[in-house]
Design a protein around this nucleic acid. Sequence first.
DNA 1: TCCTAAACGCTAACCGTTAGTGCTACGGTC
DNA 2: GACCGTAGCACTAACGGTTAGCGTTTAGGA
Lengths: 209, 209
Amino acid sequence: MTEPSGRRERKKAATRQKIADTALRLFLERGYDAVGIRDVAAEADVAVTTLFSHFASKEALVFDQDENFERRLTRAVTDRPPHEPLIPALRREILALLRHCASEAAAPIWRMIDGSPALREYEKSMMTRHAESLAAAIAADLGLPRPTTACRTIARFTVDAYSLAREAADPETALDEIFRMVEAAWEVARPDTASRAFAHHGSGAQDVG
Amino acid sequence: MTEPSGRRERKKAATRQKIADTALRLFLERGYDAVGIRDVAAEADVAVTTLFSHFASKEALVFDQDENFERRLTRAVTDRPPHEPLIPALRREILALLRHCASEAAAPIWRMIDGSPALREYEKSMMTRHAESLAAAIAADLGLPRPTTACRTIARFTVDAYSLAREAADPETALDEIFRMVEAAWEVARPDTASRAFAHHGSGAQDVG
DNA sequence: TCCTAAACGCTAACCGTTAGTGCTACGGTC
DNA sequence: GACCGTAGCACTAACGGTTAGCGTTTAGGA
């Protein structure tokens, strides 16, 4: 019951990988909607229940490899060069993600995702989940114990930037424009320099400017 | 085949209303997840197929009355007082929506929504859909033929504000903070006055109470 | 060696949703 | 008032994703 080290882990990982590979292959061959869970399970030579013990849903079969998405976002904050400001670091990472998805060998996969409403929905809710991790990373970067509203907001805006840029005709130009807006939003909210903008919070009085 | 005026329409509306009422009652009595579509249909004395001819999904049964949500957002733009700036008008409307959801007789409904992941997801994707209408309304307000990236971004940020404020411990204070950020984002992006960077309007433009 | 537990399998269902089909009643027209 | 097109609704049956219940194998540790 200590560490499940060794062969068992490898077998499990192999099964998982076989399922994911099979699923992706079938989806690309016949289309996402035309392939059923039972098809994937049969082709991967596992039971349906086994498939669902590795993946929470049919959509998760597609976004398996993109779990590192979250990692990349948080690392863009934590592992950036010492004096690089926060927002440019995020912008750089989003740009890299955009390019990774747009070109590369991943093109047919993203065509498939764009072609299925269920997958698009899933990706969006995935991004929103990741925004919460990003908010935590930003808060930690600022030395805050817990994410503030401003952290959560900037995190949400950042994943919006990804989502909006991906839908734009010219993603990279759109990203520039959106991040100018994100930067401006951050400038009025960041705790270290916000003192000149507002000095009160928590009490009833609210005001702008 | 002209206008289906009269009794038929009324009967249809009555059936729809009966289904919605029954569904809401059962959901509140037993919990959303504990009530099946077949239960609702039986209790409303209609066939399952009839239910689905009135409502696109189970979640839509809950958000039936909130179709005006989209209308309210776009009208906050189109029907605002002549010289009121865009962002404060949006802020005012979001505040009204927050209050409408938080207090009022709607409290148990929102408790139910918050208690069901499926419903929370549905609400979020609904808001994202509404963001696109809002973007169109903003574009029209500026005399643009089609929504630009900036319009879409501000629209998205606006519905984010609603979503983030609703999750916050103190929604109204959070909304103030978020809208300060939205305002800043808009200032650097708005096409007509992008040059005069910041114009603070300090006097009490927002109504409280 | 034996014991525990994880991984896997099978069956059988549950649940939301849809297709196919047909009946009924309403509304407009002659 | 009789006629007809069509909208609303019902019923059966299924599809596809997902899960529960329960049994079987197999690896790892005692």
